[in-house]
Design a protein around this nucleic acid. Structure first.
Lengths: 142, 142
DNA sequence: GTGCAGTCTGTAGCGGCTACAGGCTCAAGA
DNA sequence: TCTTGAGCCTGTAGCCGCTACAGACTGCAC
């Protein structure tokens, strides 16, 4: 049984395909310390297994939620090193949630102004352009 | 009258201070073609006037509204070259408005998930961490 | 054996700045 | 007059999160 080539691994292209990651991104994540260095074949090819795949998925899901790579590194360190990571992980997530809310607030301010100027521009046949005048005026956003 | 050293200009530090721009950013905007090259003094110092200041403010306001430098270049080209820039400018702004709305939608999705996991984590004393389990699970964001 | 696809490495590029090194210039003070 | 220090000049490198490409090697099919 053990001789059955214990859990045959996969190469970079396969793990990328299975996780929906760009091929180069996998190597990048390894380089920046998000992914442990996989074992290599005799000729130096990387050999991934399901733990790598699982970890890549973690990174991708966290990226989808907008976590920075630094935050993800922190989360993964908690996972790896702490028995009870929840309190610390919660802090990371709560801080990030505040960042996300701040970004939303910024974007909503932009949206309001943009919506207004586009409306004022009407069909664009005005002699003076409200958009351009807004941009030349001070305190466009307030 | 004309001999009165026609409109004495200012140097980079002053125009930066007056517009609230970082000193280096002014040079950067010149380098990437958002700002025309100002005249130089005999010793090569840049000499800005109020038209440069006005243009820098335009760029800053547009940045506050989230326009990319490419979009700003396009807007400025319209200002410089078109008699009636409003129709084209409106298209640039409307397109950007759509981008902003898409970003808001993305962030709101993130916010919902994050809010939920932070809430589930409670005070962080749970044995299993809902946040971390969510990240290891597929389709964190849906 | 020969082709071709896959992998390896290192490096450069994107956007939008920001910062710093190393050299010049300029104005004020001793 | 000489010096000192602040300001300006240039070019270049760094930040983030990838992405892409060059040039060399490997591995598999025909």
């Amino acid at each position: 049984m053990r001789n059955h080539a214990l859990v045959k691994g996969m190469q970079r292209a396969e793990v990328a395909r299975r996780t929906g990651t760009n091929l180069e991104t996998v190597r990048y994540y390894e380089k920046v310390g998000l992914l442990p260095e996989p074992p290599r074949t005799q000729s130096g090819y990387r050999n991934y297994d399901t733990t790598h795949e699982r970890r890549i998925r973690f990174v991708l899901r966290a990226r989808e939620l907008g976590f920075s790579l630094d935050e993800i590194r922190a989360l993964l360190r908690l996972v790896d090193e702490r028995d009870q990571p929840c309190a610390d992980a919660r802090v990371v997530a709560a801080t990030h949630l505040e960042d996300v809310r701040a970004k939303i607030a910024d974007l909503r301010r932009m949206e309001l102004v943009l919506k207004d100027v586009v409306k004022q521009c009407g069909d664009g046949t005005l002699p003076a352009c409200p958009l351009i005048e807004t941009l030349f005026r001070e305190n466009a956003v307030t």
